[in-house]
Design a protein around this nucleic acid. Structure first.
Lengths: 218, 218
DNA sequence: ATAATTATTTAGGTTTGTCTAATTTTTTAA
DNA sequence: TTAAAAAATTAGACAAACCTAAATAATTAT
């Protein structure tokens, strides 16, 4: 059974390399995980020996199939627990992450399968991220950053692409939550900010915020 | 924040010393936890320094108020999670313990308070053990080992006093679960076993089994 | 193409939590 | 009440997961 620490390494590598499925550098990983590069090198050599990563000196690291399987399993657990916390225990969007980070390390296949069923086999978590099934398969859908919408377009909020507590708090306070309909009132070219209409209110969103809200065009 | 390992030490000391509230020896604790006595001595010196236990060389160990508070908090979490597993996820009596042993180490006061409310503020866990409230107070009630009943007496099963997986499996298979009514048909003096009537069937119980089933006399 | 800079690895050290073997203290039995 | 046995502690070692400082490799800028 993998230690919690090793599980966290796998998850971090997975998150950093999933966009491009490219090798990531030890420095990148060190920054992301808040440990020193020397510790990364150390651990990568151990994980290589466990066939969890493909690591070559000075060439960075990438997950093996086994490592990816384990990482996706953690993502599955994390996201199912997030659904539980929000739907059953009324946690807010911004509160769930810290707790789910702990819960994802509970080892029990029966627990997670039963939890999935108890929650009604959800396919998306409270941030709009897909929940992998037992085989690691996740659903996909067309979605865009709100920032890409043009003046006058309408859309529905599907999720977010940034898991920052204050960002999520801001969205909660602005009531910009999943399912909400929005209309782009103005797109300002001078700073790429946008003004949207949501909940019958005009709300200004910075470029960064608009980039990390994911929507479906209506 | 206490490590999982330290939390397990506190819980073990608590369980071993709660009957008599007496000091326990390092050897007792070592056997219970499946580690060597030397490791216990080592750890006790650390815990003494953290004001979690009162430990004196060659005189055994007992929890301080602080240590007991922490241990009861773990018991609270363990038992609430057991209720969740049984009531919401349909785990059986004998399956819950291993998973709850992991879940009890999740750190989040909000999580456990919300869970308690979600479960309807239960006062007893699936084994019939009392669930401490936030202040550490638990309910009490009159209960006896089934072994103490006399021929002809009727009773209701309240719980068990042994957390052994095979013992619990046996009870599940015999449908001797919480709330079941029983009647003592015969008490055999030669081996202290008893024959009871439950679920319209005659069931023979060894002395050990009868000692670890807790009942209320009707 | 070489020098300077940056990235990465190696070497050696620390803490936590365990172990075995040796020693000391306590308990039990003669 | 002393000797033998049992229990408990100390000493020293080890693995995991980190660290700092030094060395080496790769990249970049001149």
């Amino acid at each position: 059974m993998l230690s919690i620490i090793i599980e966290n390494y796998l998850k971090s590598i997975f998150h950093l390399s999933q966009n491009e499925n490219n090798r990531i550098t030890t420095t990148e990983l060190a920054k992301y995980m808040n440990v020193k590069s020397a510790s990364i090198t150390d651990m990568m050599q151990r994980l290589e020996g466990m066939d969890l990563v493909d690591y070559k000196k000075y060439q960075g690291v990438i997950l093996t199939n086994l490592g990816r399987k384990r990482a996706i399993d953690l993502v599955r657990k994390h996201r199912l627990w997030e659904v539980f916390l929000v739907e059953k225990l009324q946690f807010t969007w911004s509160e769930v992450h810290v707790v789910a980070e702990q819960l994802e390390h509970i080892h029990s296949e029966k627990l997670i399968d039963r939890l999935e069923h108890f929650l009604g086999n959800p396919k998306w978590d409270p941030h709009g991220d897909p929940i992998p099934d037992k085989e690691g398969t996740m659903e996909t859908r067309e979605q865009f950053p709100l920032a890409e919408l043009l003046k006058g377009e309408t859309a529905t909020i599907l999720g977010v692409s940034l898991d920052d507590e204050n960002f999520l708090k801001f969205l909660e306070e602005s009531e910009l939550t999943i399912g909400k309909k929005i209309l782009v009132n103005t797109a300002f070219s001078f700073d790429d900010s946008v003004q949207i209409l949501a909940n019958k209110q005009l709300i200004n969103l910075s470029k960064k915020v608009a980039q990390h809200i994911l929507v479906r065009k209506d």
